[in-house]
């Protein structure tokens, strides 16, 4: 039954996904196995997005389905049974309250089995620094839709440097107006043109071990 789950989720068949999940659990499937099948479905969604077959609306719908599955599985999953692929701190920088792009990235990171600390929108530099300290996360994602966000991104990266964390943390920037020029100007390590690029960057950095 779980064999079909990745494809059905990737096809965005919400009702069928939820039916399969409930039926699988009722038939004795391990919640972790169900979660992994759904994560495989989200990977397929990401592949289709990269191939140009899927678009942002598809990412958002898949994120919604994944969230619905999460509501069913969460009470059944023991925290220690979930092995995380690493942790990431993310937020929309100070002065900018846009969260759509950031939320899509959060969903994709979570479905890629990463532990995500989402600080929300209009986040001051010091909150990013505090979150990096608290979580020990080696990856920071800064989002912004306004061109005004560039200054806040630069200020946040400067604050991370002043806190002595810059060598331990890889920083990516993203959002509508962000490109390679902006990335260089604000002093980030890299930038993501879309949610899938952000996931790939985070995974690469986390898998490479020491970001420094």
């Amino acid at each position: 039954m779980l064999d079909r789950l990745p494809t059905v989720l990737a096809d965005l068949e919400e009702d069928e996904v939820l039916e399969i999940v409930k039926a699988a659990l009722a038939a004795g499937s391990e919640p972790l196995a169900v979660l992994e099948a759904c994560q495989a479905g989200m990977t397929l969604v990401g592949d289709r997005f990269e191939a140009g077959e899927y678009f942002v609306s598809d990412l958002m719908m898949s994120g919604e389905i994944f969230k619905q599955v999460g509501l069913i599985l969460e009470p059944l999953l023991e925290a220690e049974a979930q092995v995380s692929g690493g942790s990431v701190v993310i937020g929309t920088v100070a002065g900018d309250i846009h969260d759509i792009g950031k939320d899509i990235v959060v969903n994709m990171l979570k479905s890629a089995n990463l532990e995500v600390t989402d600080l929300g929108v209009d986040v001051p530099a010091e909150r990013f620094v505090a979150a990096l300290r608290e979580t020990g996360s080696p990856v920071l994602c800064l989002s912004g839709l306004l061109t005004l966000a560039f200054d806040s991104m630069a200020a946040t990266i400067e604050a991370v440097t002043e806190a002595g964390l810059r060598d331990e943390v890889k920083i990516m920037v993203g959002g509508g107006p962000v490109d390679a020029r902006v990335c260089e100007t604000v002093g980030a390590d890299d930038w993501g043109a879309d949610a899938q690029a952000a996931v790939r960057l985070a995974r690469d950095w986390l898998e490479s071990g020491s970001p420094a």
Binding site: T147, F150, P177, V178, D179, R181
Partner: peptide
């Protein structure tokens, strides 16, 4: 002409 070019170029 893109807005980010006008802001950061």
């Amino acid at each position: 002409v893109p807005s980010n070019l006008l802001a950061s170029g």
